[in-house]
Nucleic acid binder design. Structure first.
Lengths: 200, 200
DNA sequence: ACGCAACTTGAGTGATCACTCAATGCTACC
DNA sequence: GGTAGCATTGAGTGATCACTCAAGTTGCGT
């Protein structure tokens, strides 16, 4: 029939994700994307539609990976609270690994995008809501397991945890010693563990 | 001698601050600024030098106002810990007032600016460090007043508080019910108050 | 071997970007 | 009232923006 595609869609998306995560939406130009994907404008538009649509695909991929990582950490711990605490402690190591940015791409997008980019902004909001939902489910699970006082509100705890993660990762974006980030993460994790019922 | 200035420098800066706070650095164009200040490019450049310098002036003004507000709340409470808790609870009302943005402009800038805007980014970092310093001083004061266990580390507590404020305000930027933000703020404030020494 | 169709190219689109500067307007002083 | 001199104007600068499309390239079915 026809010529085979030269570029792998997933791989191109991965490269674009790195760019957008590091530089944000507005500061990333099509020139940057052309360079990172080694593609010319025509191919990019044929594959992804527009800069905005490419950004949205990148957002979704980011959120999928972030949720998968959370699931991985949760699965490797015996209880929901222990899993969440481990997740926080792992975030304490943000400064120690190379990544496009230490801040959460969803938060960066939430703070950067305005009315002009309504659709992408809405996507970021929805993906953050998804993370919140997962956090809430963890606390509900902890209650079912008798790990958490049943009088506490999982929704409230989930939202607080999301705010703490947002704050921790934004704090890590500062030009600061790795130890400071580890310490903040440790304190947050300890607070979480302090919720554990003494009867559990 | 000469013609008197038509525009008030402080007032112009205030308008620019509102724009930058709401839309961020990249999404704010000189056209936007011309409109908000009712000034033509020549006047803007004569008064502020460049878009980047105007942004930096706005950042500094923002930080000065934010610090002043913190001082105001602290002064109106009898103890450092009570003041900080009140500050957090006040942030819970972010959704209830009209403001350019519910998120902190320093955090928005920290997450948005890259290597291209190194100077402005550095300024945002320095101003955040100033806020951190003030938080730390509060905890040190609380220890001197016997309000806080002297074995705790004020630096560590100050950083954790900054991360929580960053997170709370970023969370408030979500399209969410005001009550949810109030609840997160209340929980953070309660955690802070739980630090109070039983002997105080 | 060939021709079609899908993929890729890259010069070019108009719009908008931050910014400049010669001309003009205005006021304070003489 | 004249004028010295700063404030202001706004059309215009080259660069860059996101994006298009006709032409070229290539692999697959026949």
């Amino acid at each position: 029939m026809a010529r085979t595609t030269l570029h792998d869609w997933q791989d191109s998306l991965e490269r674009a994700l790195g760019l957008f995560w590091r530089k944000g939406f507005h500061a990333t130009s099509l020139k940057d994307i052309e360079g990172a994907l080694d593609m010319r404008p025509g191919s990019i538009y044929a594959a992804f539609g527009s800069k905005g649509q490419l950004f949205q695909e990148a957002l979704e991929r980011y959120a999928r990976l972030a949720l998968a990582e959370l699931e991985r950490v949760l699965a490797s711990h015996e209880s929901p609270l222990a899993g969440l605490a481990a997740y926080l402690r792992q975030l304490g190591g943000l400064c120690d690994h190379e990544a496009p940015s230490r801040a959460c791409m969803l938060v960066k997008s939430l703070l950067e995008l305005g009315e002009q980019e309504r659709v992408a902004r809405g996507k970021a909001e929805a993906l953050l809501a998804g993370m919140e939902t997962r956090f809430i489910a963890c606390f509900a699970d902890a209650q079912e397991a008798g790990e958490l006082d049943p009088r506490l509100d999982p929704v409230r705890l989930g939202r607080r945890l999301q705010a703490e993660v947002m704050g921790l990762r934004s704090f890590a974006q500062r030009d600061i010693e790795s130890a400071a980030v580890h310490a903040v993460a440790e304190d947050m994790a300890a607070s979480l563990e302090a919720l554990r019922s003494s009867t559990a």
